[in-house]
Design a protein around this nucleic acid. Structure first.
Lengths: 184, 184
DNA sequence: AGATAATGATTACAATCTGAAACGATTGTC
DNA sequence: GACAATCGTTTCAGATTGTAATCATTATCT
């Protein structure tokens, strides 16, 4: 009884095991959540930053970019937009003038409340059809899996696109004029 | 007692409800599977096409592109590569010379076997740490959720990147020279 | 202190990706 | 036979990506 013969199926039958369902439902959940977020004119990473800032304000852009799983270069335009919309704020760190301390504005805090509501509604929507007991059961199983897989709670998926590994990769390499950040 | 007050938490606590875990684990599962697939020099959509062709050979490119959730224009280069690698084959449909009938080659069938093995291993890897009973329990719950959410079994997630809704969207619009497909 | 390395923020930019529309060939309809 | 609909294809502009160059600062040597 040691060897199981999983993976053997009638030739044309689709697998639909737990892993596949997980990926499918995960994508669906992310898509649905993105739709709800769009009502607040937010993308998932934008919502992620807001939540991150609520938890621990005043961190540097580098740290935040790391947590969000995006390169610092992308973070700039990303933060620019949110700042223009008056949701976040870059404050100077007097102790180290290289780095900015990113904070939520009052407007940002207000939007965060809406985001939390949307999140709770999304939660209900996704687990619709399950009894409360079943929902707890599911959450418990998922949490154990996430734990076992080494996923930290609260870190965003990212959902980067999967690319083929092409021979000639790598971005451009040229001069670039650079730019000064703080000072004045 | 109609109103529940979910969604209310101590300010800085991360949610980590079922929906979030689902998205997180789903992304993780997809990423892990993509890594394993890369060993076979395949991307997830490529693997999806192979499985699709195994189930129902000879369908038109348009249909396949639809099932894969990709625009027909993208499907062309996509299929070209797989054809160059000798995994699939475009056969002429004598009845309707507009459309191609896409089939798996012998090489493609061989690779599909490897793909199935990788899939089974991935399944085990993702549900590691669960007893067989718990795994069945999880699969059952997920299947019910997927069903309730209207997800067909076997259709690929896709994992499209979530984009912000920008004012100036829409692709280019120019002349384009067009091209003849079949004939000869 | 002076020089040098390291770090945060930023921009420039090449390569890639994306999808809508134009298009030729064909088939269906009246 | 004219006209609309389809399939496969190519074109092409716009968006996206990430690496490297760069400036201002700060830390580390010596």
């Amino acid at each position: 009884m040691g060897m199981t013969n999983e993976g053997e199926r009638p030739p044309g039958r689709p697998p639909t095991g737990a892993a596949f369902l997980l990926a499918q439902l995960g994508a669906h959940a992310a898509e649905l959540f993105a739709e709800r977020l769009a009502e607040l004119h937010l993308t998932p990473p934008q919502g992620g930053l807001l939540r991150l800032l609520a938890d621990s304000p005043g961190r540097s852009q580098r740290e935040l970019a790391d947590d969000l799983g995006m390169p610092p270069s992308r973070f700039v335009a990303f933060a620019d937009e949110l700042e223009e919309r008056g949701l976040i704020e870059r404050r100077r760190n007097p102790a180290d003038r290289r780095l900015y301390a990113v904070h939520l504005t009052d407007e940002g805090v207000k939007l965060l409340a809406g985001l939390r509501k949307v999140g709770a509604e999304h939660e209900r929507r996704m687990t619709d059809g399950l009894s409360e007991q079943e929902r707890d059961q599911l959450t418990g199983l998922l949490r154990r899996l996430a734990d076992r897989q080494g996923l930290r709670p609260g870190v965003h998926p990212g959902f980067r696109t999967v690319r083929a590994e092409r021979p000639g990769r790598g971005g451009g390499r040229r001069k670039g004029r650079g730019a000064p950040p703080p000072v004045r």
